[in-house]
Each structure stands twice: as structure tokens, then as C-alpha cells.
Design a protein around this nucleic acid. Structure first.
Lengths: 106, 106
DNA sequence: TTGACATACATAGATTGACTATGTATAATT
DNA sequence: AATTATACATAGTCAATCTATGTATGTCAA
């Protein structure tokens, strides 16, 4: 029962930043976490996530490092100070949006 | 203090259907109403609304008629039975989305 | 009365974020 | 040995919105 992707546009960035504010994660892990935590309402795919991570990194809101886990290389992302600020701003914007929308549809 | 348009994508249709469920309205009137009711958080422009109305009409969720008001022609839109059903479905989807998002950002 | 502004509809073209499909490579499982 | 899951990546497509522009009429003040 996935949500229409027109709705989810724009929420990927704040969600990623929010997750990385808790702990460092690698891309594939983020996909599983989001799909799990949303009870399947979000159905993120690699094709959506990786370009988004690259964009966030280009904006210096997150940064990456390759880490060897056992015998496997994983690209771990951490949030930057600037990213924390962006997350807070985006979270506020999301709240305003949700409240406005609730009012409009009431 | 307008909301980023990536967020508002996908909400135009349910909002329009919701408004027309109350009363018939013409395009320009819808723009003013939405911008007013949202306290300026939504800043709809003609270039966004008219194509959306045409699409909804092509889907037979709304229908239009030209009405002469004084000396001015206005294109009034009304919601169809099918449109009412679509509105209810979309409203449910919006609620699920808002709840999921609130949970993810908590 | 004329210029400025608001009303009212319309659309072509650009932008952009997400999706589809595909590719590579390794690890785990059967 | 073959299949599946993990893990990263990107080219091409799609679609909803925005920008910019156009037409026409109504209103109001200088």
C-alpha cells in the first residue's frame, strides 16, 4: 500500500538527514530502514536514494567514507554541522506543510 | 513564507476537489481562495492551476460551464460523482502520508 | 480619456526530483 | 554451481510544477 510518489517528493532529504542525525549509515541500510520504519508506505529504491545522497554530499550536508566491514566495502554517511541546521529548517517546513494541509482538507 | 514546491506536488488535485465539493468555483477564484485559506503558505499561480483543472476535467472528476456574470464570462467548475469518490480516496492517502511522515520525523 | 492595474483564461518551454532499467561486484545460501 | 541478497552506481524517462508570455475585459484614478 505505497503512497503516490508525487506526495513523497521533497521528503527524502529531510528523512535522510534525520536518520543520519542519529547515527552513521550506509545507503543500502537507509533504504531498508525507511521501508521498514514506514511500515511499507515508503518503498524506496536504489535509483531514488543514491542520486539523493550524492546531491546532499555535493551540498556538504552529509559526508561519506568507505569502511571495510568484514570483507565488504561500505560507504558510510555522516551528517555535517551544516546538515544539522538544514535538517532543522526542513523539519520546520514539513510541520508547517502538514498543518496547512490538514487545515485545507478538514 | 511559502512552502517549497517539491512538497506541495501532489496536493493540488485533492485540494481542488475538496473545494469544489462545497460549491462551484471558477479558476481564478480557486487561486485566491487557496492562497488566502493557507495564510500565504501556498502561492498558487495560474500556470499551475489551469493545466491541473484541465487534467481533472479530462479525467471526468470535474466538469465546467461558462457562466455570464454581469458582463464577464467565467468558467465555473463543479465536482462529479466520480470526483467525490476520488476526493475521498486521495484524502485518505494524504492522511496516511501525513501520519507516516510525522512518525518518521518524530 | 487614457494609462495602470486587477480580473480571467490559456499554453509553450524549462526545471527537477523520482522512477525504470540496467550494470558491476561480492557474499551468502541452497 | 547456481541463485539470491547485498551494495554501489547511473543513463534515460516521466510528470507535475513554475516561469514567462499572451489575449481580452473591467475598473479606477489622474
Amino acid at each position: 500500500m505505497a503512497i503516490n510518489s508525487d506526495l513523497t517528493r521533497g521528503v527524502a532529504e529531510p528523512i535522510i538527514l534525520k536518520l543520519l542525525a542519529d547515527r552513521m549509515m550506509y545507503g543500502y541500510e537507509i533504504i531498508r530502514e525507511v521501508n521498514l520504519k514506514s511500515n511499507g508506505e515508503f518503498e524506496w529504491k536504489e535509483g531514488s536514494l543514491y542520486p539523493c545522497l550524492h546531491k546532499l554530499e555535493a551540498q556538504k550536508l552529509i559526508q561519506s567514507e568507505w569502511i571495510l566491514c568484514g570483507s565488504k566495502q561500505r560507504k558510510y554517511y555522516t551528517i555535517t554541522v551544516e546538515g544539522m541546521r538544514a535538517m532543522e529548517a526542513k523539519t520546520e517546513e514539513l510541520k508547517t506543510f502538514a498543518n496547512t494541509l490538514a487545515m485545507m482538507m478538514a
